[in-house]
Design a protein around this nucleic acid. Structure first.
Lengths: 207, 207
DNA sequence: TAAAAAATACCAACCAGTCGGTATGTTGTA
DNA sequence: TACAACATACCGACTGGTTGGTATTTTTTA
């Protein structure tokens, strides 16, 4: 009967992955059933298990899909245009703050949500989430390293550890936003993060 | 047959709550079934639903129980002995860092884990988690306010926002620890937080 | 027409929650 | 102080519905 709404052949997998991004961010991984995903994607269960051997495998693929989507978003953002690497780092932080708008489920992180629930019960999915976070961290490290060499070469912290710290602040900010029911508290935390980075690179040279 | 292992009358409720703290932190809220909780607590399903009208109501009670347990832990810690409020704030941060040891599920936060999953689907439980975090934040605000007045009265941030920021860092650090499978990365982030607080209160007066 | 892609129908295990009933107090009263 | 009346705590089999996953059939396209 609903021929008009039939989905084009070959698109089921992508539609399931796109649906997973939204549904899992709103409901969590465990509370999201395969049927929920099929309904949101507009496909049948048969199509689902044709493309994914299990729910966990979908989760792993969704983590990679999230990595691809957000990777494109950040790669295309224009904070990269700054000549000074510190401006690129601060531009990244500002970009993250600007994103904090609208519904909570729209700006929070898929892999942060998933790994919170499944880290001890689904090793492969945990590893996939870790890969996604680590690959995003890797895109920050080079700018931070350059900024450190230029502005704070003797600092007692590593570029890697600061890059991971930015992710800790963001992930924690998402949790507070979920608890309070709004983005404002998250933006406050990102502003503290910006101030911290400014101070790290503004310190007077050793006297 | 197992008369010896029968649990004393009146202890079922407490045992369920204690079990919930551990099981939910390890498996997440949604993935934890009522039967899981009953098994871990050594009680029957009948006892469970005698004390809690629903799984969500158990979650709400567990958030309060967590608040009571951790509230006692922090109230009894000896960073409160410092005369300078800044030392109390830094002592709190060090205390949080020292706690980061052992199994991930033993140092992570119950309400952070729960609210991540259920913020959009279980309003009462979300509110309970928010109350727990807010009440912990409240225990920090007074020390931060005093430290601010003493060391940085003209700062362009509020005591409340810094207190919430500490929780963002901690919650985010837990997520990274879950993703990476160890406490080390979390301790790194808490060290960044300490450095930030030190710098906030060490700034030279306006020139 | 062969093979991939998707739909349909179905299963056994499991889920949150219910129910009738028992064991163990606690309270009122003579 | 004895005992009836009642309340609380607990038990575990059971229910309707849902779960992740499978087996089979139909459709599409190369």
């Amino acid at each position: 009967m609903n021929q008009a709404t039939r989905i084009p052949r070959g698109e089921a997998r992508r539609r399931i992955l796109d649906a997973a991004l939204n549904v899992i961010r709103a409901q969590g991984y465990s509370a999201t059933s395969v049927d929920d995903l099929c309904k949101a994607a507009g496909v049948t269960k048969g199509a689902f298990f044709h493309h994914f051997a299990s729910k966990e495998e979908l989760g792993v693929a969704a983590a990679q899909h999230w990595s691809d989507m957000t990777g494109g978003l950040f790669a295309g953002a224009d904070y990269h245009r700054h000549a000074d690497p510190l401006d690129r780092v601060l531009g990244y932080i500002d970009f993250r703050r600007d994103i904090l708008a609208g519904e909570v489920s729209e700006f929070t992180c898929l892999v942060g949500t998933m790994v919170q629930e499944i880290y001890d019960t689904h090793p492969d999915l945990r590893a996939a989430c870790n890969r996604t976070i680590a690959s995003h961290v890797a895109t920050l490290v080079e700018d931070i390293r350059q900024a450190r060499e230029m502005h704070a070469p003797d600092a007692d912290w590593s570029a890697e550890s600061l890059a991971w710290h930015t992710q800790a602040v963001l992930q924690g900010a998402f949790i507070l936003a979920k608890a309070k029911g709004g983005a404002a508290i998250a933006a406050d935390s990102v502003r503290h993060l910006r101030r911290y980075v400014e101070m790290l690179f503004a310190e007077a040279p050793a006297e």
